[in-house]
Design a protein around this nucleic acid. Structure first.
Lengths: 162, 162
DNA sequence: TATTGTTATACTCTATAACTATA
DNA sequence: TATAGTTATAGAGTATAACAATA
């Protein structure tokens, strides 16, 4: 940030630059971007006893009303056995509730509780702040462009084989 | 790609769009971008019996000459116990070799074998193709811009706390 | 028979603690 | 004492297989 007056040789080499060939690989960049994003998001969500995956489920339940676990797992591309554990955790925290679908008693309808809606609101604000922090190295224009390109990429690239 | 003549109601809903709130979250986008990248890169590297992590080590060894495992693990931000397993795998495949540092016999110098250099070349070409495939939803201009912004972001955002 | 949710289980990736051989 | 590498081990996170209830 501030231009240091220390001579170059005094710089902590902690942020040493990776070799160019590696730094240009998309895989390397995407992974590190994601890891760094999480180190912003994690602390923002921790006080709410949430993490990124739980928040995604919460947002999905909010958007899709009382939804079958099956559907939630399809939308999030996780196995249905994984969804059991995620819903377990949210239910334990009192953020969602399960109810048997009266029309097909095999299914569980997952819905937001009052507490869940409240926590979701707080979580979304906290993550918004974390995202700003994560993007602060880019200008406002670049931030918009980055979001646009990333969305386009995810929307366009072939979805992973089921 | 091609403008389908099928009526909207005939579209396979397989690529159903996630709810807007979720699709706008950077965490969601970054994660899915990374997952999809890997589903391009994985099959490209599998015939060479490599994956993204092993390739990163290989590239680093190539760039930094006979390097201590310690240094490799720092550059890649993985624990040194993790690096042991990565170097084990590469050595088993005959792609790198370990030699005791004569000046400090505690350290192991890791260097590329002839076979390793050959496989590295093939792997880099394969990954280049996979990257193109991954980016094909963007125009050439957008591809360059995406790479630029992603690099800038990774270079600028605060590195994860050690 | 097929499907939803569940449990038991196993596998991958990664880290912590303890050991060894050097320094 | 401290450091580089190693091993044993444990913890996430996720998936596969088998089972119960329901269709």
């Amino acid at each position: 940030m501030s231009s240091s007056r220390a001579p170059l040789t005094d710089r902590k080499p902690s942020a040493e630059t990776p070799p160019p060939a590696l730094a240009e690989r998309l895989g390397f960049l995407l992974k590190h971007a994601y890891v760094r994003y999480q180190s912003s998001q994690g602390p923002a969500l921790a006080p709410l006893e949430l993490d990124g995956r739980l928040l995604a489920v919460l947002m999905l339940v909010d958007a899709e009303g009382p939804a079958l676990q099956q559907r939630l797992s399809e939308r999030l591309q996780v196995d249905r056995t994984t969804m059991v554990a995620l819903v377990d955790a949210l239910e334990r925290g009192g953020l969602v509730q399960r109810r048997r679908d009266p029309d097909d008693r095999r299914g569980q309808r997952v819905s937001l509780t009052t507490k869940g809606a409240k926590v979701l609101g707080r979580a979304e604000r906290a993550v918004g702040v974390a995202e700003q922090e994560f993007l602060e190295g880019l200008s406002k224009r670049e931030q918009r462009e980055f979001r646009r390109l990333l969305s386009k990429l995810v929307a366009s690239s072939s979805p992973p084989p089921d």
